[in-house]
């Protein structure tokens, strides 16, 4: 194991200890027993590994959606909207084309990501603001289509069923394969090198003869590809969309936390997605076993994400978004 990886691991272990400490303190302050809460959360969270794999798979991809553009110094907050578009496309195209629906979901996400990238590259439109606007537009477009055009004939609150299905392990392996692909892309290809140089310094990249616009559009497209696939995997697992949007809402935003905990590294994203997935699953049992309000789980998960990603996010902020 290289020294760098060892350092990253020990840093994460330290952050994990700090996160458990801060969470326990907060639980004590709120009047709950931290030991039994966290014990229930972790034991039940890891009790059903297949369930963890299923919940983690889309999170790995929505983390990659944020991570790749971030390595190029771009903030793709649009993973959420890309996931909506990917889910819709998958739902629609899987009816006729089965597995190809997944590809359609990814490509539509890529198209959206690429558009946001092009707006930034050619017109100087801030990608964060454009992303947030498209997120909400697509939220309502999805809601409209689910309640008007893709509606289930018998149950009007939800969409028709997806036309293609992969098991929990298969979707997790797919996510893992895509993460490895992202790893190779970042560290073993010319484009990956250009992305990383752009992330370190835009001006240096331009000086070195890198086509900044091209790399901006491409990195956002690749992010969108992952974001769209994340949405497709999520709706595939649930089997349909519904008018509460709870099947999709938040998958992109959670991906940002996963990417930051994983220190913007594809393998880190896989590990942190599995970790967060097990926390979310275990959280249900804290309510069931200890009678705590369900919001407490959100608080625990939120604090964990915050504390675990804080060292890396701070480093990022200090360098003004530039990565080494």
């Amino acid at each position: 194991m290289s020294g760098e990886a060892l350092r990253a691991l020990s840093e994460t272990a330290l952050a994990l200890a700090a996160a458990v400490f801060v969470t326990s303190l907060l639980l004590l302050l709120l009047g709950y027993d931290p030991v039994s809460s966290l014990a229930v959360m972790f034991t039940y969270g890891l009790g059903n590994v297949e369930y963890v794999a299923a919940v983690a798979a889309p999170l790995v991809l929505s983390a990659l959606a944020f991570l790749i553009p971030l390595r190029a110094g771009l903030f793709n907050i649009g993973g959420e909207g890309q996931a909506y578009l990917g889910a819709l496309s998958f739902l629609y195209f899987s009816q006729q084309f089965g597995a190809l629906g997944l590809l359609a979901g990814g490509l539509m996400g890529a198209l959206l990501g690429g558009t946001l990238g092009a707006l930034r590259a050619f017109l100087g439109v801030n990608e964060v603001i454009a992303s947030i606007m498209t997120n909400w537009t697509l939220y309502y477009v999805t809601l409209f289509l689910v309640s008007r055009h893709l509606t289930h004939p018998e149950f009007p609150h939800r969409s028709i069923d997806v036309g293609f299905f992969l098991g929990s392990w298969t979707s997790f392996l797919l996510a893992l394969a895509l993460a490895l692909l992202a790893l190779v892309l970042l560290y073993n290809t010319l484009l990956g090198y250009e992305i990383r140089v752009l992330g370190s310094s835009r001006r240096a990249a331009a000086y070195a003869g890198i086509d900044v616009r091209r790399v901006t559009v491409l990195s956002m497209s690749i992010g969108g590809l992952f974001g769209g696939t994340a949405g497709a995997l999520k709706v595939m697992y649930v089997g349909h969309l519904d008018t509460t949007m709870s099947a999709l809402f938040g998958v992109g935003f959670l991906g940002i936390g996963v990417a930051l905990i994983g220190k913007s590294h594809p393998i880190g994203a896989v590990l942190s997605a599995a970790f967060l997935a097990s926390m979310i699953i275990g959280g249900h049992w804290v309510e069931l076993r200890l009678g705590t309000p369900p919001e407490l789980t959100d608080v625990i998960v939120g604090v964990m994400v915050l504390v675990l990603s804080a060292p890396y996010a701070l480093k990022l902020l200090q360098r003004g978004g530039r990565l080494g």
């Binding site: 059903n48 919940v55 697992y237 649930v238 509460t244 709870s246 099947a247 309510e287 069931l288 009678g291």
Partner: peptide
């Protein structure tokens, strides 16, 4: 009586 509130639609079946 114990209570449970699923986080989102993905958790309904496995829970």
């Amino acid at each position: 009586v114990d209570y449970l509130t699923p986080k989102d639609l993905a958790h309904f079946v496995p829970l």
